[in-house]
Amino acid sequence: MTLSTLQNFLEVFSSLFQERDVITADSNFRELEEWSSMQALIVIAAIDEHFGITIPERDFRAAQTVSDLHQLTLKQ
């Protein structure tokens, strides 16, 4: 699995939301209108599918922005 670029990651992340046009790398995703515990699972599953990385639960909970999540995909 190749490492994702931030741009590539942002595209995958945004595609999971209706409000995709307002999402940037610096967006606090927890403040998105559509955010919910289910949406968190959808994001975790999509990152796993596209980048081959299952983000540990504690790391995911600490992340705030899309860019934070992207960093976590590079860490493993």
Partner: peptide, 12 residues
């Protein structure tokens, strides 16, 4: 239940 922890467990 910590649904996210269980989900991550299943996935990995």
């Amino acid at each position: 239940m910590n649904g996210q922890a269980v989900f991550t467990f299943g996935l990995s």
